[in-house]
């Protein structure tokens, strides 16, 4: 059996067995329709508890509070890098005390240290 003939045969056999809807089942359905008209109503909506105006006011208030908190409790800014002085207590050049000049540039990575030999005056010339 092929194609359409097979299909027709199946349809015939499938339709051969049909049952009527039990009377009790239909009655129950109709009773449910009558008993619960409100719950079955497709257009019944739950009333809105908060009005749109109140909702907008609450949202605005929340934004203001958040802004105030943000501004008041801003974390302290990190201090700017400060140039630090460099001190040299003592320096010698060829065993003699030397004068030191220290130049700090704005760039904190650069410090110029200049050491000048102090001229020795001969005491024997007097």
């Amino acid at each position: 059996m092929k194609g359409k003939r097979f299909d027709e045969e199946i349809k015939k056999r499938v339709r051969a067995l049909e049952q009527d809807i039990p009377a009790g089942l239909e009655e129950t359905f109709l009773e449910k329709l009558d008993q619960k008209p409100d719950s079955l109503s497709p257009v019944t909506q739950r009333p809105r508890r908060v009005s749109p105006g109140a909702l907008a006011a609450a949202a605005s208030l929340l934004i203001v509070v958040l802004l105030a908190v943000t501004l008041l409790f801003r974390p302290a800014q990190a201090p700017a890098a400060v140039e630090q002085d460099v001190f040299i207590d003592y320096a010698t050049v060829e065993g003699q005390p030397a004068t030191t000049y220290i130049v700090n540039r704005h760039d904190p990575d650069m410090t110029i240290v200049w050491i000048e030999k102090v001229p020795v005056v001969a005491m024997n010339n007097k």
């Binding site: 809807i21 039990p22 089942l25 129950t28 359905f29 329709l33 079955l40 497709p42």
Partner: peptide
């Protein structure tokens, strides 16, 4: 099947507006 049939009818009535 009886329950599914009943549910089908009730649900279809509930959404009959659509």
């Amino acid at each position: 099947a009886d329950d599914i049939f009943q549910d089908t009818l009730l649900k279809s009535f509930r959404y009959f507006h659509s």
